[in-house]
C-alpha cells in the first residue's frame, strides 16, 4: 500500500510538473534517514533470526532488513506526499482557500510563510553569501566547499530572520492582521465540480478507512473484555 501511495504521489507530482523538484528535495530527507535506518535495524535487530552476515556484535538479518525497508518506504511515501504538495501548491491560492473556509487569518499567514520559508531562506543565504564573496570568501563549487561556506552563513541567517520577524510583527499588526472580523481574499480560488466531488470522495474514503480499522478493534477490545 505504501508503494501505491508513493507511486500516486510521484504521479501527481509529475502531472503538476514538479517531479524533479519534489524528488530532489525528498532525496535530501530520505537518503540520510534510510542510511540511519539500515545501520540501526539492518545491523542490530534483536528479533532477527535469519542471519545473512555477521561482523562481531553486528548481524545483518533478513528480518532487520525487511523492518528497515518498511520504515524507509513509509517515510519516503509520507515525505514525497508532503513535498509534492508543498512544491506544487500555489501559496496564495491555498491561503485564499483557507480564508474562505473560515480558518483564522493568522494561521493562514503562518501556513503560507512556513511553506514559503524554504525560498526565503534560500534567497537570504544567497545574499549573505554574496556579501561574503564580495569580501573575499571563495566558494568552491564542490559539495564540501559549499558546506564550509554555508557554515559561515548560518549564524547571520538566523540573526537576520529573527531581526526581521521582530520588525515584521508591528507591520502586520498595523496592516490589520490582528483585527477581528471577516476576511476576504484578493486571489481567486479556482474550483470545479470535479474537484469538489473528489474532495468529498476522499473525505468519505478516509472516514471509511478509519471506521473499518476502528470498529473491529473496538469490538475486539469489548469482546475480549467480556
Amino acid at each position: 500500500m505504501w508503494l501505491a501511495v508513493l507511486a500516486a504521489s510521484l504521479g501527481a507530482a509529475a502531472a503538476g510538473r514538479v517531479l524533479g523538484k519534489a524528488v530532489t528535495a525528498a532525496l535530501v530527507v530520505v537518503v540520510p534517514f534510510a542510511l540511519w535506518a539500515l545501520a540501526i535495524h539492518g545491523l542490530f535487530f534483536p528479533e532477527g533470526r535469519t542471519v545473512l552476515a555477521a561482523f562481531g556484535p553486528a548481524r545483518v538479518t533478513a528480518e532487520g532488513l525487511a523492518y528497515a525497508g518498511g520504515i524507509v518506504l513509509r517515510t519516503a511515501a509520507l515525505v514525497v506526499v508532503m513535498l509534492a504538495f508543498s512544491t506544487w501548491v500555489e501559496v496564495p491560492v491555498l491561503r485564499a482557500a483557507l480564508v474562505r473556509r473560515g480558518v483564522p487569518a493568522q494561521l493562514g499567514y503562518v501556513l503560507s510563510t512556513a511553506l514559503g520559508l524554504a525560498s526565503t531562506v534560500a534567497e537570504r543565504l544567497e545574499r549573505i553569501r554574496e556579501a561574503q564573496e564580495a569580501r573575499g570568501l571563495v566558494v568552491r563549487q564542490s559539495l564540501p566547499g559549499r558546506i564550509v561556506a554555508a557554515r559561515l552563513q548560518v549564524v547571520p541567517l538566523v540573526l537576520q530572520l529573527v531581526d526581521e520577524a521582530g520588525e515584521r510583527a508591528p507591520a502586520l499588526e498595523a496592516r490589520g492582521q490582528a483585527l477581528p472580523g471577516r476576511r476576504t481574499s484578493y486571489v481567486d480560488e479556482p474550483d470545479s465540480r470535479a474537484q469538489r466531488a473528489l474532495r468529498w470522495v476522499l473525505a468519505v474514503a478516509s472516514l471509511a478507512v478509519v471506521v473499518s480499522v476502528m470498529v473491529p478493534a473496538v469490538a475486539g477490545v469489548l469482546g475480549g473484555g467480556r
Binding site: V99, A105, L179
Partner: peptide, 9 residues
C-alpha cells in the same frame, strides 16, 4: 490590509 478588513474582491 484590505483583505484583513474584509473588503469585497
Amino acid at each position: 490590509s484590505l483583505e484583513q478588513r474584509g473588503v469585497e474582491r
